[in-house]
Write a protein that binds this DNA or RNA. Structure first.
Lengths: 205, 205
DNA sequence: TTATAATATAATGAA
DNA sequence: TTCATTATATTATT
């Protein structure tokens, strides 16, 4: 028991991927109609806009993970229970990186490979970017197969894919967006090459 | 005249934006969108669906563009008429995308601003999609400042803004539409967060 | 380094 | 107009 990180993730509702900001404070209903006055009065009014990025997976209490860690070279050291508010635990794999103000902590032996995360990932996790999804080969294969036939799948197909591939529908959506962009890019590049060839051929004549 | 790129886009039928797949052939009007069918897992059925992926930007002949270009720093270089079968002129993107083995080609100095714009628009997208406008920081600042006071500016304010910011009034209109959508989204999301926090707080009590 | 997942947002079309 | 969806530019991860 003492040698194993205890990870207890709560099963909060799976947060939807959403973007945007949080509006805090209250806004005046006063309205001015000339731009000059708008700009001039700007400082006079105090709008308290606190912009906070919406990162549901950073919110505490949803996927809180508690685990036990060991400090020092051996497992006889006192262990600490560290609560991590995340769906991913950034402290894993801390072995390779010295974190500011931290003693070297060894977890690695207590993590599975999938649990191990890089320090960079921790940073991005902290910043609130969704960790990059690594699609499996079979997932990619299926996505590509569908894409070949239909590069604009509707919600029904996306949901079906999501279910079959055990992914969020959002990941499917984003994947198709990026895939379309990639196709267009390659098309653009081949067009460019064609045009360039025409161009240089004409020059040589 | 010789200093100006001649842009003559054919006026092919603007294809409608469509979703899904194009059915080619007359075999059957039956259309299955299930993944099994896409993957060919339903071979028991024997109607042959000739599925042609919907790739509007790959269709030739729709937005054929012929243009004259200049090579080098000055306009005394020989110019060439290059037919481009594309919704976009790949040379235009050489600024943003460095193509392998490309030569530096200068067009922009030979166009007036408006010529450049219309050219870009012509060439931009298979159905004439407007190239994405990149607002400057100062433009955004002013738009945001106005938005804070009035998120539904009338035509008069929009025109005034357009004039001051050297933008089309249309861009202003769209910007405010998108900005309102963003605000709504963020509001929805903060509501969601509040509800969620209430939920988890209640759980812990 | 490249490929690509993720993000942010301008543009579009339907209702 | 809103709304959902798209293309597109950019950032960041692997």
């Amino acid at each position: 028991m003492a040698n194993t990180p205890v990870c207890a993730a709560t099963t909060g509702p799976s947060p939807n991927m959403q973007k945007g900001i949080c509006l805090v404070g209250n806004k005046s209903s006063q309205c001015s109609f000339s731009i000059e006055s708008i700009l001039g009065l700007d400082k006079a009014r105090e709008y308290t806009l606190a912009l906070k990025p919406y990162r549901p997976w950073l919110e505490p209490g949803i996927n809180s993970v508690f685990f036990v860690c060991f400090v020092g070279e051996d497992a006889s050291n006192p262990c600490l229970h560290i609560p991590i508010l995340s769906y991913e635990n950034p402290f894993f794999h801390a072995v390779n990186y010295t974190m500011p103000g931290e003693r070297i902590v060894h977890y690695e032996k207590y993590c599975t490979a999938t649990e191990r995360l890089s320090y960079k990932r921790e940073v991005s996790w902290y910043r609130g970017r969704r960790p990059r999804t690594a699609f499996s080969r079979s997932q990619i294969e299926m996505l590509e197969t569908v894409f070949r036939v239909n590069s604009y799948p509707g919600i029904d197909i996306r949901e079906e894919l999501a279910h079959k591939l055990d992914l969020d529908e959002d990941r499917i959506q984003i994947w198709f967006q990026n895939r379309r962009a990639k196709l267009k890019r390659s098309h653009r590049e081949s067009q460019f090459l064609m045009a360039k060839n025409t161009f240089t051929t004409n020059l040589q004549e």
